[in-house]
């Protein structure tokens, strides 16, 4: 499709927030002035089952409405999915994968049989535990993805998420702060 269009595929387990992450990510990116799409894998959702969700980002209005087969970026919320789901499927030579893991990039590259330059790792689960107090890796992974894509404005994204979360957690300001810190930390800590 269009050169300017960025396509993202999220892998998670039902209940882990892969869909929410894609929606939150899209809204935040829209706030920085880009056209977006966010959609789940179409079908019944079940707790624990492998699920996917998708994003498109573009400078131009997005007119296509089809599944994403060749994503530019793949985000894996749960590293155990690497065992059971072909997470690199359709990922071209220039594509990048961002994984929530404690393992090194070289180990992951070996495991997935792709070039090390394509692999980015961040321990989002640990970040989430330290900042939010629960293992919800989808929010920090937003920060990691923004860093890896490189062309997005992290401050704009953070501002929008702050607005959204302020409204959602108006009775629990601590939760909001933890979420924002987790995004910032993952943005800083994700490495190739």
């Amino acid at each position: 499709m269009s050169v300017k269009m960025i396509e993202v595929r999220w892998h998670g387990r039902g209940g882990q927030g892969a869909k929410t992450a894609a929606l939150l990510f899209a809204e935040a990116v829209m706030a920085t002035g880009k056209y977006i799409q966010a959609f789940p894998e179409y079908g019944p959702e079940r707790m624990g089952a492998p699920v996917q969700s998708f994003n498109r980002i573009s400078e131009e209005p997005i007119i296509i409405h089809s599944g994403i087969k060749n994503p530019d970026y793949v985000v894996v919320l749960d590293s155990s999915l690497m065992e059971s789901v072909p997470v690199t499927e359709g990922l071209g030579k220039g594509g990048k994968i961002v994984i929530n893991t404690s393992l090194s990039t070289s180990k992951i590259a070996q495991k997935l049989d792709i070039d090390i330059s394509q692999v980015h790792v961040v321990n989002a689960s640990q970040i989430a535990l330290e900042t939010i107090g629960r293992d919800i890796p989808n929010t920090p992974m937003l920060g990691a993805l923004v860093k890896v894509i490189g062309t997005l404005d992290i401050n704009g994204v953070l501002e929008d998420i702050e607005t959204k979360l302020t409204a959602k957690f108006r009775h629990k300001p601590g939760v909001m702060k933890g979420n924002l810190t987790s995004i910032k930390r993952a943005f800083d800590e994700v490495k190739n």
Binding site: A22, L23, A26, E27, M30, Y35, I36, Q37, A38, F39, P40, Y42, P61, I62, H65
Partner: peptide, 12 residues
């Protein structure tokens, strides 16, 4: 509108 394709797709 088309189920899921439009109903569940977030757009601008």
């Amino acid at each position: 509108m088309d189920g899921f394709i439009t109903s569940h797709c977030m757009e601008v």
